[in-house]
Simulated assay, not measured.
Amino acid sequence: MTNDSDSSSLIRLNIGGKKFCTTIDTLTQREPDSMLAAMFSGRHTLCQDPEKGYVFLDRDGKHFRHILNWLRDGVVPTLKDSKYTEVLREAEYYQLLGLIDGIHAILNKKKEDEELDTELTRTDIIKCIQSDRVRFRGVNLSGLDLSKLDLSFVDFSYACLRNVFFSRANLHCAKFKDVDAEGANFHNATLRECEFTGANLRGALLAGANLQNACLINSSFCQADLRSAHLQNADLTNANLEGAILEGANLKGAKLSNTNLKDANLQRAYLRQVNLRDTHLEGAKLDGANLLGAMR
Rank of each mutant, 00 (worst) to 15 (best):
D235M: 03
I217P: 00
A254I: 07
A199N: 06
L68Q: 00
A189F: 03
D132L: 08
C215H: 09
S219N: 04
F153C: 09
F156G: 06
D60M: 02
D101Q: 15
G138T: 09
A207V: 01
G53E: 01
D81L: 13
L281I: 13
L120C: 05
K285W: 10
T23H: 04
S257G: 10
S5V: 09
C128R: 15
Q267G: 09
D117I: 07
K83S: 08
D33W: 01
R162S: 10
G293I: 10
L120G: 02
D117H: 11
D235G: 05
G138E: 07
T23V: 06
R296C: 10
W70P: 00
A189M: 05
L236I: 03
E90R: 03
Y93H: 14
Q95V: 04
S152P: 03
T2C: 06
T28S: 14
N200P: 06
T190M: 12
N213W: 08
V76H: 00
L241D: 01
E195F: 06
T279V: 13
L27N: 05
F40D: 03
Q29E: 15
R192M: 12
L291Y: 07
K177I: 15
R122G: 06
K148H: 13
N140V: 05
T259A: 15
L276A: 10
G102Y: 07
N233F: 12
D4E: 14
E282D: 15
T45W: 08
L276V: 10
N200T: 09
T23L: 04
N238Q: 08
Y93A: 10
K83G: 00
T121I: 07
S7T: 13
I67W: 00
L99A: 04
G61C: 05
P32F: 05
D6R: 09
D132V: 07
N108A: 13
A174N: 02
L205W: 02
A214Q: 04
A229R: 00
E114F: 11
Q48C: 12
R135F: 11
I67T: 00
A234V: 03
N275G: 07
L97H: 08
T237V: 11
R268H: 13
N69E: 05
